[in-house]
Amino acid sequence: MKQFIFLLIVTCLLCSCSSDDSDTGLVGRWQLTEVLVDPGDGSGTFNPVNSNKTVTFNSNGTWSSNGTMCFISTESSNGTVGTYSETGLYLQSDSCSNPDWQIPFEQNGSTLIVSYFCIEGCQEKFIKR
């Protein structure tokens, strides 16, 4: 009887797990789609942009971008590279004027929001491609 109950519990647990085929991990290529620049009163909102800027996260803990990640910019020239943790980008020493900065980001599914050091709020929103 105990084995039957154990088997029933295990079966229920396995059946309750959902399978999500979409890749929501950080590794992969992300496309810039929106930027937020707050005017100083907290009323800033994300606005769509037409940009070729991407950032790519590799499984070995490195990242690269075809645009600058030193400051907010929609340009896709002057690429930057570095390493990353679960919460931030670390810039390679020759990428920006202050390579010790950690640029914070937050990932939620297929959306990545990168926050820059601005007096007023400024962020870039990327979508996983």
Rank of each mutant, 00 (worst) to 15 (best):
G88C: 10
L36A: 01
P99R: 05
S18F: 15
I119D: 14
F46Q: 14
D94R: 07
K128M: 08
Q3E: 12
L8R: 03
K53T: 00
S115E: 13
F6E: 11
C118I: 03
L32V: 00
P39R: 07
G25K: 06
Y84N: 07
V37Y: 08
G28S: 07
D23N: 09
W30N: 04
P104H: 07
G44R: 00
S51F: 05
Y116Q: 01
G42M: 15
D94Q: 03
C70V: 05
E34G: 05
S19Q: 14
V35L: 10
T80L: 06
G25Q: 10
I72R: 12
R29V: 03
T11A: 07
N60E: 14
S16K: 01
K128H: 09
D100M: 12
N60R: 00
I127P: 00
T54H: 11
S43H: 09
S85L: 03
S93H: 04
I119W: 09
T45F: 13
S97Y: 12
T62S: 10
L91A: 09
G40A: 09
S16D: 05
E75A: 15
Q92D: 15
V114R: 03
S51E: 02
W101P: 00
L112C: 00
K125S: 07
G79D: 07
D23S: 03
T74H: 06
T11Q: 03
S64D: 01
T56A: 10
S65Q: 07
C122Y: 15
T33V: 10
S95G: 02
Y84A: 05
S65P: 04
C70S: 06
S51H: 01
G40L: 15
K125F: 11
Y116N: 04
S18M: 07
V37H: 14
V10C: 06
S93E: 08
K53G: 00
S77L: 15
T56R: 06
G109Q: 10
D100Y: 15
L112V: 02
G25I: 05
W63L: 03
G109R: 08
E34H: 09
V114F: 14
G109M: 02
K125R: 06
S93M: 06
T80E: 10
L7Q: 04
F126G: 10
G28V: 01
D41V: 03
T111Q: 14
I72C: 12
G25M: 08
L32C: 03
C12D: 01
L14A: 05
D41M: 08
F117T: 03
S59R: 08
S97F: 13
S110Y: 12
I127L: 13
L89G: 05
S95Y: 12
S59F: 14
Q92L: 01
N52R: 08
D94L: 09
C96F: 09
V81Q: 09
R29K: 13
L26S: 04
M1N: 08
G88K: 03
T54V: 14
K53Y: 04
S51P: 11
T56E: 13
K125C: 04
P39Y: 06
C15M: 13
